[in-house]
């Protein structure tokens, strides 16, 4: 059951990411990124991270991607053109990404025995566990991130404002 769910949603993730890579229109890329993020939420649930699964849906596929699609529609972004830069990017980008992938897979495969298995439900982090750490041990970083959000909101307003 766990394996079946992993392959369904892992496959959806990879399919969405490949679609993001090959689509030339930004709105299609944004919609496939939403597929990737929602499938990742299911994978978080399989790994016992229930709060993060909810936060993934609300923050990533909800808030952030709505912002992206809104900006794409606002700027009326069309298909991207092939330019001189794209030829060089193909020459460097695809072998570079493939080399990175090969290195990572080699490292993970060489440690596959000590890594072990992930069973469904044998480790569950509830919101209570998470908030105990977050509000007791890490209260100062948590408050600092709220200041960061405030600064980001002010910065976004200042940057996107029309200049007179």
């Amino acid at each position: 059951m766990h394996l079946v769910l992993f392959f369904i949603f892992g496959g959806l993730c990879v399919a969405g990411a490949l679609n993001l890579l090959f689509q030339r229109h930004p709105i299609n890329a944004a919609l496939s990124l939403i597929v990737v993020m929602s499938s990742l939420a299911v994978l978080y649930l399989l790994l016992g991270a229930e709060f993060l699964a909810a936060a993934q849906v609300i923050v990533y596929s909800g808030a952030i991607m709505v912002l992206f699609t809104f900006v794409i529609m606002l700027l009326n972004a069309g298909r991207e053109d092939r330019t001189h830069g794209s030829k060089a990017a193909y020459l460097v980008g695809i072998p570079g990404a493939a080399a990175l992938f090969a290195t990572l897979v080699y490292i993970f495969l060489s440690y596959r025995t000590p890594l072990g298995d992930a069973g469904l439900g044998n480790y569950l982090v509830t919101t209570t566990d998470l908030s105990k750490v977050l509000f007791r041990d890490l209260l100062l970083p948590f408050e600092v991130t709220s200041v960061l959000i405030l600064v980001a909101v002010l910065g976004a307003v200042v940057l996107a404002r029309k200049e007179h």
Binding site: H2, L3, V14, V36, A97, F108, L115, G116
Partner: peptide, 20 residues
């Protein structure tokens, strides 16, 4: 039971596609 390294390889795939 799913081996942990399946998840790690999936994230490596997603990261490499992101880099590309």
């Amino acid at each position: 039971m799913v081996p942990i390294y399946y998840y790690l390889i999936l994230s490596a795939i997603l990261f490499s596609i992101g880099v590309g």
